[in-house]
Design a protein around this nucleic acid. Structure first.
Lengths: 247, 247
DNA sequence: TCGCACGATTGATCTAGCACAAAGACCGTG
DNA sequence: CACGGTCTTTGTGCTAGATCAATCGTGCGA
């Protein structure tokens, strides 16, 4: 198992014994299709030639805002938080990256945010220059990335609306439904919403304080809209939740 | 001069008498390079084959959230506000588009926001299908659009941080400096920040109320940080403003 | 089994920004 | 140049959510 240190200095490809196909080594516990949910087999095969893999322990930071953007990542397992820090410590989480998501796609010289692992994370790491070369040579691949980027933009605009114009209760409701839908894409529909991140992360994502998040969840539980369980929330009254979240 | 009606039903290209080069007709008062500041002459020439032009009067809406995304636009003159409306009338402006900016790039079937003209606006309008065909055929062009989209994403993430974690005064200071920088790209540096949008637009962009925007500007003016003039603000103490806005 | 550390919850109070209301300021029009 | 509409400013409470401060689990290592 590779560590963050191994990520920073990518291990040679031979470290992962592979059969030559678009499969990843068992040692890394990486499922090939998870590199990017939107990619097709042929595209994966191309990526396969330039990928480095690794794992990041919970709470470790592997992208530092302002540093040279030398890598592009995709999440294979686990949850990553992307955030901006103000000089006085205030933090805004601008997104959670989950299996299939890309990080660091912006064509800038420096990372615009920091990123660290919420829980244990498995990553694919690509050298930026190699990645760019591949992308330039394969228009269909660039098109996928462009789709991914514009989709991220749509989500970012919804998030602005959520933070700028909605009450705490509405933000929490929308957050729970969003997390439910994201997990549904990965592991199938469920009334149980996995919440690997802690309350402080939810607060910093929604522009609230940890106390407000806690109180709001407690109130929703008291009203029998949700049931709070460790690391998760069970949705009891989806209609009511959707009504609170609706635009 | 074409109107919104003419935009909705694009006038035949012959309506604009052109010499065949990458120049636009005088009647439309459109400067070719303004189609997109990031594009080069060759790329403009390609766009030239599929462009339709028109003008939108102040306050007219030309993109309706949720409708079929049949067109891509670029702003040539004036300022456009992009916004999302909640069912109860709350509004979040997710961005202002100014000369050189593209609108409706997201590869979705429906527009994710509404857009209307803040002041008199000149637009280039492209049929989405034709635009997509051109983009697919010209990888360098797709790359430009991807750059534009990722840049928009970076801006959206900064905006999230602004709205989610900063005080009213910090938001206003950052907004003024941002507007100053955007105009600088178009018409050169100046201590006078043009503000074509009204207070309510600024409020809905920053997640504040009109009263808070007005009071905050008044306070900055009382403290001799800015000078309020019609349709604009003059920056008197840039250092102080930057200090308030800094991350 | 204890104790300690970390996260979550709950309580009490405070305040930045909101909501409502009433003047101003400005501008085009008859 | 008076009138009406629109936008902005200013004044006065009010409240959602922040802040400060205890608890209250829960897991884990000695």
């Amino acid at each position: 198992m590779t560590t963050l240190a191994a990520l920073a200095t990518p291990s040679p490809r031979s470290a992962c014994a592979r059969s030559g196909g678009p499969s990843y080594c068992d040692a890394c516990k990486v499922r090939p299709l998870a590199v990017c949910a939107a990619l097709e087999a042929g595209e994966l095969h191309e990526l396969d030639a330039i990928v480095h893999q690794g794992r990041v322990a919970a709470k470790e930071t592997f992208i530092h805002q302002g540093e040279d953007a030398t890598s592009v990542f995709s999440v294979v397992e686990g949850t990553v938080r992307l955030y901006k820090l103000l000089s006085d410590g205030r933090r805004q989480i601008v997104g959670f990256a989950m299996p299939g998501d890309f990080l660091g796609l912006a064509l800038h010289n420096r990372y615009g945010f920091s990123a660290d692992a919420v829980d244990a994370v498995a990553l694919c790491k690509f050298d930026r220059a190699e990645f760019d070369r591949l992308v330039s040579a394969k228009p269909h691949f660039l098109r996928r990335l462009h789709e991914f980027a514009t989709h991220e933009l749509v989500i970012a605009q919804e998030q602005m609306t959520l933070i700028g114009r909605r009450s705490a209760e509405e933000r929490i409701a929308a957050f729970l439904l969003m997390m439910r839908d994201r997990w549904a894409r990965i592991s199938g529909a469920s009334v149980t919403v996995q919440l690997p991140m802690q309350r402080l992360d939810i607060a910093d994502y929604l522009g609230l304080t940890i106390e407000t998040v806690s109180r709001t969840l407690t109130r929703l539980a008291r009203d029998r809209v949700i049931l709070i369980v460790p690391e998760a929330v069970r949705i009891l009254d989806e209609g009511r939740l959707a009504q609170l979240a609706r635009s």
